Simulated assay, not measured.
Amino acid sequence: MTVPFIKMHGLGNDFVVLDARTMPIPAMRPIVARRLADRRTGIGFDQLVLLEPSDSHAFRMRIFNSDGSEVGACGNAARAVALLHGEPAIIETGGGPISLEALEGGARVDMGQPRFDWDTVPLAYPMDTFAMPVGWVEDSCTLENPMAINVGNPHVVFLVDDADAVPLGAIGPQIEHDSLFPERINVNVISLAGPDHLRLRVWERGAGLTQACGTGACASAIAAIRRGLVRSPVRVTLPGGDLQIAWSPGSTIMMSGPAAESYRGSFIWDDYTTGAEG
């Protein structure tokens, strides 16, 4: 079976999009996603995006990380899909419905309302999510007292003096897999760059260091706004570029930023499923 794909990216966070809305595609399994994600023997991506029919919304978007795990939301992928779809739509995701609209060179996405309760992040046990009384140490770097937020998937946000100086590749996996987080966690480190400007780096659960993370930008802007550090809308600068996040307490999260199609191609499904288990 030959399966067409579309390679896209949002600020360098790259995706393979499979469109199963009109063409049946076999059930996605973690090992198949991992094989397709391999940048040497597969196509290569941070996330795989599977578009499917929906009974309640325009269509359904499912997201698989490069390690094969399925997640509820991905802001950069949502912008890419908005650009691909071309028309305003409300779509179904594992993190809840979101609305999206293509713009010139990108998209605006309403990511819904953030969740702050410990059991909706979720955490393993009750804790103040505004300033969690926990910390992690890697060599001479200490990350402590983060804010925990669910914006379709779970995040912790640490305020640091210099986001670029944090050894996130070393300490990120330690936090991601901590038993405090039963569904693992995305790890964000932010530093202030102005009254409405943040610098951000993200360790994404199941994908590692990426050039950009849309939900991470949302969580980080919300954390900084709630602590009175910045005002909305917030410019969030990631290694791959800038996103604009607008939010106020009680409202939904509006994310705007670029997305682009890289190329189109196809692969033989059986090449990535032969001998696959799980």
Rank of each mutant, 00 (worst) to 15 (best):
L103Q: 12
D38R: 10
H177I: 06
A219W: 04
F158N: 07
A260D: 15
I43R: 11
A73H: 00
A148H: 00
P30R: 08
C218P: 03
V156M: 07
C141D: 00
V81Q: 05
T274V: 12
G44M: 10
G208E: 06
L198G: 03
D161M: 12
A20V: 07
W203P: 04
M28Y: 06
L159S: 12
Q244W: 09
Y272K: 01
M132R: 09
Q47W: 07
T237M: 11
A219T: 03
G216L: 07
G135T: 07
A131G: 11
R235C: 14
P146T: 10
I253K: 02
V137T: 14
R226M: 12
N150A: 15
S220Y: 08
H57W: 13
W269Q: 03
V166Q: 04
D242I: 14
E101M: 14
R205V: 13
A219C: 05
Q47G: 09
L84M: 12
A207S: 15
T41D: 05
T142R: 15
P126K: 04
V32I: 14
M132A: 09
S232Q: 02
I185R: 02
R29E: 11
D14W: 01
L180A: 11
L123Q: 14
V71S: 08
A58T: 13
H155N: 09
S248N: 10
V236W: 02
V71K: 01
G172Y: 05
A33H: 01
P167M: 07
E87D: 13
D117Q: 09
T210Q: 08
P126N: 08
V151I: 14
A217H: 01
D46R: 04
P146E: 14
L50Y: 06
E104S: 14
W118C: 10
T22R: 15
V230H: 01
A165K: 01
S140W: 03
A165D: 07
A20R: 05
A260G: 13
H177L: 13
V156A: 08
P88V: 07
